[in-house]
Lab assay of single mutants.
Amino acid sequence: MTTFKLIINGKTLKGEITIEAVDAAEAEKIFKQYANDNGIDGEWTYDDATKTFTVTE
């Protein structure tokens, strides 16, 4: 398992979430479901060097 981080730069929600996932594809699926569940819709980026996803509304 690898640790992945999501940085949320939303209009109403900001913060960071860290999860353990098998790979970046699994982490992205989990993070996008979390964002969808919380009404966050924005532009996604991923930095493989730091294993960090960012979503900006």
Rank of each mutant, 00 (worst) to 15 (best):
A35N: 08
G39P: 05
Y46A: 03
N38Q: 15
A21S: 10
K51M: 06
I30N: 15
K29Y: 15
E57K: 00
T3Y: 01
T52M: 12
E16V: 03
L6H: 01
I8D: 08
E26Y: 13
D47G: 13
T52R: 15
D37L: 15
D23Y: 08
D41T: 07
G10E: 03
T56R: 08
K11G: 13
T12E: 13
N9W: 08
K14I: 07
Y34W: 09
G10L: 13
T56Q: 12
N9K: 06
A49G: 04
E26M: 13
K32I: 06
G42R: 00
I40V: 10
A24K: 08
L6F: 11
W44R: 04
L6V: 03
T54F: 05
T45M: 12
G10Y: 12
E28K: 05
G39V: 14
T3N: 08
A25W: 05
E20P: 09
I17N: 13
F53A: 06
V22Q: 07
L6M: 04
D23M: 13
T3L: 08
F4T: 01
D47K: 11
E57G: 01
D48T: 14
D37I: 14
E26N: 09
Y34K: 08
E28M: 05
T52G: 10
T12I: 12
G15W: 09
A35K: 04
T18W: 10
E43H: 09
F4V: 03
G42P: 02
G15T: 14
Q33D: 02
T52N: 14
F31D: 00
T52I: 06
T56S: 03
F53W: 09
I7Q: 06
I30G: 09
T3V: 15
E16R: 02
N36V: 10
Y34Q: 07
I17T: 04
I8L: 04
F53Q: 05
Y46S: 14
I19T: 08
V22G: 08
D47Y: 12
Y46R: 09
K11L: 11
F4E: 00
E28Q: 08
I7L: 05
E16N: 04
I8F: 10
F53V: 08
I40W: 15
Q33L: 10
K29E: 05
D47E: 14
F4Y: 09
I30P: 06
Q33P: 03
V22L: 12
W44E: 02
T56P: 01
A49P: 14
L13P: 00
D37H: 06
A35S: 07
F4S: 01
I7E: 02
D41K: 15
I7R: 05
K5L: 08
I7M: 02
E20V: 13
Y46T: 07
T18L: 05
K5T: 05
D23P: 03
Q33F: 08
Y34M: 11
T54S: 06
N9P: 01
N9S: 08
T56K: 08
N9T: 03
M1S: 14
I7V: 12
F31N: 01
I7H: 06
T50C: 04
A49K: 11
I30Y: 07
D47Q: 12
Y34T: 07
N36Q: 06
A24Q: 04
K29A: 10
A24M: 04
A25E: 06
Y34D: 08
I30F: 12
K32E: 12
M1V: 12
K14N: 15
K32V: 09
T52D: 14
N9M: 14
T3S: 06
W44K: 01
I40C: 01
E26A: 07
G15R: 03
A24V: 11
T3C: 01
T50V: 10
E16M: 01
K11P: 13
I30W: 15
Y46G: 04
N9E: 09
T45Y: 08
T2I: 09
E28D: 13
T45I: 08
K5E: 10
A25C: 02
I17M: 07
N9L: 13
I8Q: 03
K32A: 08
T56G: 04
T56W: 03
G39S: 14
T56H: 04
A27L: 00
K14E: 13
N9C: 03
M1D: 10
E43G: 09
K14Y: 15
V55Q: 04
F53C: 01
F31M: 04
T45E: 15
E16H: 03
A49F: 06
M1F: 10
I8A: 04
A35L: 06
K29T: 05
L13Y: 09
N38V: 14
A21I: 10
E26Q: 10
V55L: 02
T54E: 08
K51S: 04
T18S: 06
F53N: 01
E26K: 08
N38W: 03
T54V: 05
A27F: 00
I17H: 14
E26I: 13
V22M: 15
L13G: 02
N38I: 03
F4K: 00
K51R: 15
I30A: 06
W44F: 09
E26G: 11
K29I: 11
K51V: 07
T56D: 08
T12N: 15
I17D: 09
T56E: 13
D48S: 08
E20F: 08
K32Y: 07
D41C: 02
F53E: 00
K29S: 12
T50W: 13
A21F: 15
T2G: 06
Q33E: 15
D41P: 13
Q33S: 14
D48C: 02
I17V: 05
E57P: 01
D47C: 03
I19E: 09
E57L: 05
D41V: 01
K32Q: 11
T12K: 07
A24C: 02
T45H: 13
E57D: 09
A27W: 00
V22D: 05
V22K: 08
G15M: 04
W44V: 06
W44Y: 13
K29F: 13
T2Y: 11
N36S: 02
N36G: 10
E16A: 05
A49T: 10
L6K: 00
K14A: 09
V55G: 03
G39K: 05
I17A: 12
F31A: 12
I7K: 06
K5I: 04
T2M: 05
T2C: 03
K11I: 04
E43K: 13
K32S: 12
I8N: 04
W44C: 02
A24Y: 09
A49C: 02
I40F: 09
T3P: 04
K11V: 15
T50R: 06
I19L: 09
K51T: 10
E20N: 04
K5N: 10
K14D: 10
E16T: 11
L6R: 00
T12F: 09
I30S: 14
E28V: 09
T56C: 02
I30Q: 11
G39D: 04
A21V: 15
E57T: 03
G39E: 15
E43D: 15
I8V: 14
D47T: 15
Y34S: 09
I40E: 02
D41N: 07
L6T: 02
T56A: 02
A27D: 00
E57A: 06
F53Y: 14
N36I: 05
I30C: 03
A35Y: 01
A27H: 00
F53M: 11
A27S: 13
F4D: 00
K14Q: 12
A35Q: 09
E57C: 01
T45S: 07
T50G: 07
K51L: 14
E57M: 02
L13N: 08
D37F: 14
L13T: 04
V55Y: 00
D37R: 08
K32G: 08
T45P: 00
K51P: 09
F4I: 05
I19V: 05
L13E: 15
N38F: 14
Q33G: 07
D41E: 15
T3A: 07
E43F: 06
T52H: 15
T56Y: 02
G39F: 08
G39Y: 12
W44P: 09
A21M: 15
T12M: 13
T3D: 07
A24R: 01
A27T: 06
G10R: 07
T50A: 10
K32P: 00
D47I: 11
V22H: 05
K14S: 11
E16C: 03
D41Q: 07
T50M: 07
G39A: 06
G10P: 03
